[in-house]
Design a protein around this nucleic acid. Structure first.
Lengths: 144, 144
DNA sequence: TATGATATTGAAAATCGATATCAATATTAA
DNA sequence: TTAATATTGATATCGATTTTCAATATCATA
């Protein structure tokens, strides 16, 4: 079952921006939250299509943008040029470990790295806001 | 003066792949090495145009790809969607600290972070190959 | 240094993902 | 119910990159 909390977050965001709670937005959010993987816009479009064939491409992109703005979604652009979206339902901040053979993703966090990143930014006179870290390697399964 | 070493690296790479040492390739490499900043393909194209108006867009892209393959160039795709290329002439491995206001780049390395990244990958059963880290923040100049 | 096999080129067309346009429709507050 | 306004889907458009293709350049070998 998909959380009420995230639905609420989205609706609150729409309300504060004087945007409307359209059916399409609700349906896209619901489907997006239900898929636990890093989706491309196209993959999301396909999933949405199965249930709601009338929903167009542009609405997918528009809704993804809103979801990113309200903090429910993160846009990730990878080495290979693809842009993927991950929902933050039940996930905290994390970075990615990516297998260069099979493309498998693992979410990782290392508090020590996090704090060193902050420190490093400050050392250079930057006020740190966020970061992006991707570790590429070959996973256990592919190494053999 | 631009290093012979890099030119040699490129020529050796071309030789091993049975590719040819065309004038265009030599000229693009030379101009690319001479510019010490993170260029978009278009920016490189413009610089090349000034000296060699006959060289086309496609050749710029084709040559950048070769330079990346032989290790003289790194392709970077940033948060804002732009793709930039940096040459590795006189640079070692480094990550980036990027100002979200003015777009200024600083190259940074933190050996402690580097080794924790390796460790983290290994902990998850990955054989680490490379990584990418971008720290976003507001720089000293923009903060005021 | 001429030849022929093959890679490279520039120009233009094609492709890709993403965004903007626009008339028809849905949402919302009054 | 109405009126104001936001949203929609279809389509056109965009900018970045890649592909196509006929003409040309490179290079090993004769």
């Amino acid at each position: 079952m998909v959380s009420e909390k995230e639905t609420k977050m989205f609706e609150d965001y729409l309300a504060t921006k004087d945007l409307k709670h359209s059916q399409q937005r609700k349906e896209i959010l619901h489907i997006f939250l239900g898929i636990d993987k890093h989706l491309t816009a196209n993959e999301l479009y396909m999933s949405v299509q199965k249930k709601y064939p009338a929903i167009g491409y542009a609405t997918i992109y528009r809704t993804l943008k809103l979801l990113c703005e309200c903090g429910l979604c993160r846009e990730l652009s990878f080495e290979d040029g693809t842009t993927r979206y991950e929902h933050l339902y039940g996930h905290q901040h994390h970075d990615h470990l990516i297998c260069t053979k099979c493309g498998r993703f693992v979410e990782v966090v290392d508090p020590q790295i996090e704090s060193l990143q902050e420190k490093l930014a400050k050392q250079h006179g930057f006020y740190p806001q966020r970061h992006r870290m991707e570790l590429y390697g070959v996973c256990k399964r592919c190494k053999r």
